[in-house]
């Protein structure tokens, strides 16, 4: 597939503006990954303000560096799924339980409402939703340290 013909820019109110090859201009563009978990680098859509797809990108690699930089910066401010590298402590083994964790985005604490908020992913991965709906990722629970694994086991 050929390079997609569109240009991206950021306007003064900090929003992305997309200009298509046909000259149409769309402000307030949001990049959205189609498979944020399964295939983050494949399938990216630029959605307009009213939720319509403006541009579809098959893989992020087809983007030119400028587009890529803008999209990446927008995604970092939008995608939030801290990856847990260690469970420091849990307040109790019965839910709701407050977990103190170290993530790739710093340490924090969150409340796990129930065991059913832990979703299993392929390859020993786990996706944990807290009481505010923030998702925390554990890429491979077998790779955690012993302490974390021991705490985690009690919830699985």
């Amino acid at each position: 597939m050929s390079k997609i013909e569109f240009t991206l820019a950021r306007n003064r109110s900090g929003r992305l503006v997309c200009t298509l090859a046909d000259g149409s201009v769309h402000a307030n563009i949001t990049p959205v990954r189609a498979f944020p978990l399964a295939a983050p680098n494949e399938g990216l859509a630029l959605m307009s303000q009213d939720g319509h797809e403006i541009v579809w990108v098959d893989t992020l690699d087809e983007l030119n560096p400028d587009q890529r930089a803008l999209i990446d910066s927008e995604l970092t401010g939008r995608e939030f799924m801290p990856e847990i590298s260690r469970l420091n402590s849990v307040s109790s083994f019965a839910t709701p339980s407050t977990w103190s964790v170290t993530t790739n985005r710093g340490t924090t604490a969150f409340v796990l409402k129930g065991e059913e908020d832990i979703r299993r992913l392929p390859n020993n991965g786990l996706l944990i939703a807290d009481n505010h709906g923030i998702l925390y990722l554990i890429a491979d629970r077998k790779a955690l340290d012993r302490h974390s694994r021991k705490l985690l086991e009690r919830f699985l």
Binding site: T76, G77, E79, F80, P82, T103, R105, G106, T107, T108
Partner: peptide, 10 residues
């Protein structure tokens, strides 16, 4: 505020 601009816990 509990997040910075890169969405790290700060």
């Amino acid at each position: 505020l509990d997040l910075d601009h890169r969405l790290h816990f700060q």
